[in-house]
Design a binder for these strands. Structure first.
Lengths: 203, 203
DNA sequence: ATCGTTATTGATTGCGCGATCAATGAGCCC
DNA sequence: GGGCTCATTGATCGCGCAATCAATAACGAT
C-alpha cells in the first residue's frame, strides 16, 4: 500500500510548500490535514508523521515564511548609497511600503497569523519577535536622523522614532490588506516626507 | 415543551448579547449555535429562528458592535475646546490611541472579523466601510491643520494627512493587541508631536 | 372556553475536522 | 536474497459543528 519514499527533508518541504500553496489561496482557514495531503499528493496520515499536529504544522509554516521573507528583503536595497539621514530613513520606509502590495498574499497571511497568535502562545512569541526585529531595524537610521539635527528633533529618541516608523508601515500594511483600492501609498509617503523634513528644507 | 415567550425584539437582543459575551471571552471561534443558546438560556434551534444562519448572526453582531463603538466615541471628548489645529489633531489621535487598551476585546474581535471577511463578502464590506469612516473622520482636522500653515505643510493634502493619522492609530492598535508590555503609547505620541509641530514652535 | 398562530424545544442528521493505528511494502544492510 | 527498519497508506474513531424539523405549549383573538 505504501507509495514511493522520499528523503525526510524533501517530504517535510513538500508538505510545507503544499500548506503554503493552500494558505496563499484560501488563507489559514483552508489549511486542513486532508487539504494539505491532497495538495502534496500524499496521504493525510503522513502530515501527522512529519508534524505532530496541525498547530505545529502552522507554526512551522510561519517560521518558514518569515525566514523566506527576511532573506528576500534584508539586502535588496542599497541604503548605504544615501548619505542624508532623513532621506535614508524615508527610503527605508518607502522600500518597505512599496514591497507590501507586491507581497499581498504574504502580508495577508501574516495578519492571519497575527490573529491566530492572540490565542496561540507559540505563534504569538514568534510574531512578537518578528515585529520587534522589524522595529529594531529602524533604530540605527532613526538614531542618525536625530543626531543630524538635535534642535529639530529635541525630545525624540531613536527608539521612539523607530517605533513610529514601524507603526506607520504596519498601518499601511493594514490598509493595503483591508482595502487596496482606497489606499494611496504614494500620497501617504509624500505626506510623511513633508512631516519629517527639517525646517531648513522648508525655508 | 416550549418555555416562556418573549417579545421578538428582546429575544433578538438577548441572543446578540449572549453572542457578544462569548465573543469577548473566547473570540469568534467560540461563537457556536450551542454556545450562544446556552449563554442566552434558550434552545439551539431558536438561534436559527431569529438568525437564519450562524454567518448572519455574526454579521448582525458586527453591525451591533460597530454601532455601539461609534456611539461611545463620537462625542466623548470636547475637541472643539482646543483652538490650535495641530493640538486638535494630536488630541484626536491621542484620544483614540488611549482608547485602544481599554477596549482591547473589541479591537481583537475586529481583527477576527477581518479574517472572517476573507470568506464572507458582507463582512468585508462592513469592515471596509467602518475603516473608511474612521479615516474620513480625520479629514476636517487635517484640513484645518494644513490651512493653518500652508508653507510648513506644502504638498500635504487633508486626505493624505488623514490617511497617515489613520495608519498610525491602526499600527498602534496592532502593537497594543500583540504586545501591550512592549508598546509605549506615550513615547510614540511624544515622537509624533515632535514631528508634527511647526518650525515656529521649534524655534 | 376554544382555536389558530407561532415561538420554542431538543432530538436528529450529516459533515468535516484532527488524530490514531494496523497493515504494508520500499529501500537498505549483510 | 533474506530480513529489518520505517516511511507511507487509508480506513477509522470521536468530536463538535451548522442546520432541520416534528412536536409542543404559550398566547392573542374571538
Amino acid at each position: 500500500m505504501p507509495g514511493p519514499r522520499a528523503p525526510a527533508e524533501k517530504r517535510r518541504e513538500d508538505i510545507l510548500r503544499a500548506a503554503f500553496a493552500i494558505a496563499a489561496r484560501e488563507r489559514l482557514g483552508g489549511v486542513s490535514a486532508r487539504a494539505v495531503a491532497a495538495e502534496a499528493g500524499v496521504s493525510p496520515g503522513l502530515v501527522f508523521f512529519y508534524f505532530e499536529s496541525i498547530d505545529q504544522l502552522l507554526v512551522a509554516l510561519l517560521d518558514w515564511m518569515l525566514a523566506q521573507t527576511f532573506a528576500a528583503t534584508d539586502f535588496s536595497n542599497r541604503l548605504a548609497d544615501v548619505s542624508d539621514p532623513a532621506a535614508r530613513m524615508m527610503l527605508a520606509i518607502r522600500r518597505d511600503v512599496a514591497w507590501l502590495p507586491k507581497q499581498r498574499e504574504r502580508v495577508e497571511l501574516f495578519f492571519d497569523y497575527w490573529v491566530l497568535g492572540t490565542r496561540h502562545p507559540a505563534v504569538r512569541r514568534t510574531i512578537r519577535h518578528a515585529l520587534d526585529r522589524y522595529r529594531a531595524s529602524f533604530v540605527p537610521l532613526a538614531g542618525a536622523l536625530v543626531a543630524s539635527d538635535v534642535e529639530r528633533y529635541s525630545g525624540v529618541t531613536a527608539e521612539g522614532l523607530a517605533a513610529v516608523a514601524a507603526s506607520f508601515v504596519e498601518g499601511c500594511a493594514l490598509q493595503i490588506v483591508m482595502d487596496p483600492t482606497q489606499f494611496d501609498a504614494e500620497r501617504s509617503m509624500a505626506t510623511l516626507a513633508s512631516l519629517v523634513r527639517s525646517p531648513a528644507a522648508v525655508a
